[in-house]
């Protein structure tokens, strides 16, 4: 019952940004899939222009208990930034009281605003310790989900199965560990 009450005022607008190749598109898709599995309305839009691996890319995810009108995110309630250019680009767009997840392994700068909740998570380092640097995106996603609390991390783990093609399913356990690692970084903070 408590959970249902919580779901009645969900209206998250998320921007996930990083270098092309860091897995920002996939993170957004998994987040959207998890939101859908949790019974919420979701949209996902990629934004990469003509950029290539190594350029900057971002995606926009909306998760809401109400039907979603515009799928665009102009002023996010939460951002995940995996590299420095993304922090510079989006820091000032975040709504007051919004959430900022910073990959502190690759970003040495601090967030300059004091009206947002900031979590510095060494995503790249933590993923490396788990054995695969490619899991750093899942560490960051686990951190965001844990900071929210309305989306169960198990639903996000379930979403991996839907979003990854069958030939990549062997990587699911590692990705699930990475999600947990990110969540722990928040709950232990």
């Amino acid at each position: 019952m408590e959970k249902n009450n919580q779901k009645n005022n969900i209206d998250e607008r998320v921007i996930i940004a990083g270098f092309g190749g860091q897995g920002v598109m996939l993170m957004g898709k998994i987040l959207a899939q998890a939101g859908m599995l949790a019974g919420l309305n979701v949209t996902w839009i990629p934004k990469y222009g003509a950029e290539v691996r190594g350029g900057t890319a971002h995606c926009m995810v909306r998760i809401s208990h109400k039907p979603i009108a515009s799928p665009l995110v102009e002023f996010p309630t939460a951002i995940i930034v995996l590299n420095k250019p993304s922090l510079v680009k989006f820091e000032n767009k975040v709504r007051p009281q919004g959430t900022v997840i910073v990959n502190s392994s690759l970003i040495d700068e601090k967030v300059t605003r004091d009206d947002v909740k900031v979590y510095y998570v060494p995503c790249t380092l933590l993923a490396n310790q788990l054995g695969d640097v490619k899991g750093s995106n899942m560490v960051a996603l686990g951190a965001l989900v844990a900071s929210w609390g309305f989306l169960n991390i198990d639903v996000v783990k379930e979403a991996l199965k839907h979003m990854l093609p069958a030939y990549r399913h062997k990587y699911i356990p590692l990705n699930q560990k990475a999600l947990d690692e990110g969540a722990h970084a928040i709950t232990n903070a």
């Binding site: 309305n41 990629p46 799928p71």
Partner: peptide, 9 residues
């Protein structure tokens, strides 16, 4: 382009 690439349930 948005309609084409946007994901929704």
């Amino acid at each position: 382009g948005i309609l084409g690439q946007m994901m929704e349930p």
